[in-house]
Amino acid sequence: AVTGSQTALLLRAFEKDRFPGIAAREELARETGLPESRIQIWFQNRR
């Protein structure tokens, strides 16, 4: 499950760019500790 702090970080990124590229998703994966594929799905679901 995604924690509150991970969600906050993802929401901030989403406000800046609703369609992040692979580099941005990989950076978010490093920052959150989540797999990049999970980040991609999160953005798809959020849109």
Rank of each mutant, 00 (worst) to 15 (best):
T3R: 06
F14W: 12
E15F: 10
R12L: 12
L11E: 15
G4L: 14
A8P: 02
E36F: 05
R18Q: 13
F19D: 07
L10F: 01
A13I: 04
A23P: 05
R25V: 15
L9P: 03
G4E: 15
T32D: 01
R46K: 13
A24S: 07
E26K: 13
P20Y: 02
L10T: 00
N45I: 10
L34T: 02
P35H: 09
P20V: 03
A29R: 03
L9T: 11
L28A: 01
L9I: 15
L9Y: 07
P35I: 04
S5R: 14
F14I: 02
T3C: 10
A29D: 00
E26A: 12
R47L: 09
R38G: 07
I41W: 12
D17K: 03
T7W: 15
R18Y: 04
D17C: 15
E15W: 09
F14Q: 01
A29G: 05
A8Y: 08
N45M: 12
A23G: 08
T3I: 05
D17F: 05
T32F: 02
E27W: 10
I41K: 10
A23S: 10
N45A: 10
F14M: 03
V2L: 15
R46T: 10
E26N: 11
A24H: 04
T3M: 06
I39F: 01
S37F: 13
R46E: 12
L28V: 02
Q44E: 15
R46D: 02
R38Q: 14
T7I: 14
P20W: 03
L34S: 00
R25F: 14
R47S: 05
Q40C: 13
F19N: 10
Q44A: 11
T7S: 11
T32Y: 01
R46I: 09
L34R: 00
I39E: 02
G33S: 03
E26S: 09
F19R: 04
L28Y: 03
I41V: 10
Q40G: 07
R46P: 02
A23V: 10
G21N: 13
Q40L: 14
I41Y: 08
N45T: 10
I41S: 12
Q44C: 12
A8I: 13
A23F: 08
A13R: 02
E26Q: 13
A13W: 11
W42L: 02
I22A: 13
R47H: 05
A8T: 09
D17H: 07
P20I: 04
T3D: 09
S5H: 13
P35W: 03
G4C: 15
E15R: 09
R38P: 02
R47A: 05
R12D: 08
V2F: 15
I39T: 01
Q44L: 06
F14K: 02
P20H: 02
P20K: 00
E31R: 12
L34C: 04
A23T: 09
I41T: 10
D17N: 14
E36V: 13
G21V: 03
P35F: 03
E36P: 09
R25G: 02
G33W: 02
A23K: 13
R46Y: 11
E36N: 05
G21C: 07
Q44I: 09
A8H: 08
E31S: 11
A29V: 06
A1M: 13
I39P: 00
R30G: 04
T32P: 00
L11M: 12
P35T: 14
T7Q: 14
Q40F: 12
A13V: 06
E26C: 14
P35E: 09
P35V: 05
L9H: 08
R30H: 06
D17L: 04
P20Q: 01
L28Q: 00
R12F: 06
F43E: 03
E31V: 14
A24T: 09
G33C: 05
F19A: 05
T7G: 08
L11K: 08
R38M: 15
E36R: 03
A8Q: 11
Q40K: 13
N45P: 00
R12N: 08
A23D: 10
P20F: 03
R30Y: 06
I22Q: 14
G33Q: 04
R38S: 13
A1F: 13
R12G: 06
K16Y: 08
R38D: 14
E27R: 13
W42D: 03
T3Q: 06
E31T: 11
A8W: 08
A8K: 11
L11R: 07
Q44M: 08
E36H: 06
I22V: 11
G21Q: 07
V2S: 04
I39G: 01
E31C: 11
R30L: 08
Q44G: 05
R12K: 13
E15K: 09
A1P: 12
A23L: 12
L11Q: 11
T3F: 06
Q6I: 14
R25S: 03
R12W: 06
Q40D: 15
T7Y: 15
W42R: 01
Q40A: 13
T3K: 06
A29H: 03
P35Y: 03
R38I: 15
T32H: 02
G33A: 03
Q44F: 07
E26G: 06
E26W: 07
G4V: 14
L34G: 01
F43R: 00
I41M: 13
N45V: 09
V2Y: 13
I41R: 09
A13Q: 04
S5V: 13
P35S: 14
S37Q: 11
L11P: 01
E36C: 05
A24V: 11
Q44T: 07
A8S: 09
E27K: 13
R47W: 06
R38N: 07
E26H: 11
R38V: 15
E36Q: 09
R38Y: 15
G4H: 14
K16I: 11
I39N: 01
P20G: 02
N45G: 06
E26P: 01
A29P: 01
D17W: 05
P35N: 07
F43L: 03
R47T: 06
Q44W: 07
G4D: 15
E26L: 14
Q6F: 06
F14T: 01
L28D: 00
R25E: 02
S5L: 14
I22N: 08
A23I: 10
Q40M: 13
A13P: 01
L10Y: 00
R12I: 12
Q6L: 08
P35G: 05
A24P: 02
S37D: 11
V2E: 08
L10I: 00
E27I: 12
L28R: 01
Q6V: 12
F19H: 09
T32A: 04
I39M: 01
A29K: 03
A29N: 03
K16P: 01
T3A: 05
L11H: 05
E36W: 05
R12M: 11
T7E: 15
G21Y: 02
R30M: 07
R38T: 15
A13L: 06
T3E: 06
E31A: 14
K16D: 05
V2H: 06
E27L: 12
L11S: 06
R25Q: 06
R47C: 03
G33F: 02
A23N: 09
R25I: 15
A24L: 10
R18V: 05
F19M: 06
S5D: 13
T7K: 13
K16M: 10
E31L: 15
G21D: 14
F43K: 00
A13C: 13
F19V: 04
L28H: 01
G21L: 05
A29S: 11
R12T: 08
P20S: 02
N45R: 09
L9G: 03
A1N: 12
A13G: 02
S5N: 11
T7C: 15
A1I: 13
K16L: 11
S37Y: 14
V2Q: 05
G33N: 05
R18N: 10
T32S: 05
L11D: 07
G21K: 05
E27C: 09
T7F: 15
R38K: 12
L10Q: 01
L28M: 06
A1K: 12
L10D: 02
R18P: 15
Q44V: 08
G33H: 04
A1T: 12
Q40R: 14
G21E: 06
S37P: 10
A1L: 12
Q6M: 10
E36L: 12
S37T: 10
E15D: 08
A13M: 07
R47I: 09
L9F: 07
N45K: 10
A29F: 03
L11V: 12
P20C: 04
R47Q: 07
F43N: 00
R30F: 06
E31K: 12
I22M: 12
E26V: 09
G33I: 01
R30S: 05
I22K: 15
A8D: 11
L28C: 02
P20T: 02
E27G: 06
R25D: 01
R46V: 08
E15N: 09
L10C: 03
A13S: 06
A23R: 11
A29C: 05
G4W: 08
S5F: 14
G21H: 05
G21F: 02
E27F: 08
V2T: 07
T7D: 11
R25A: 04
A1G: 12
F43S: 00
N45Q: 13
L28E: 01
Q44N: 08
R46A: 14
A24N: 04
G4Y: 06
L11C: 13
R25C: 12
A29Q: 04
G4N: 14
E27H: 09
T7L: 15
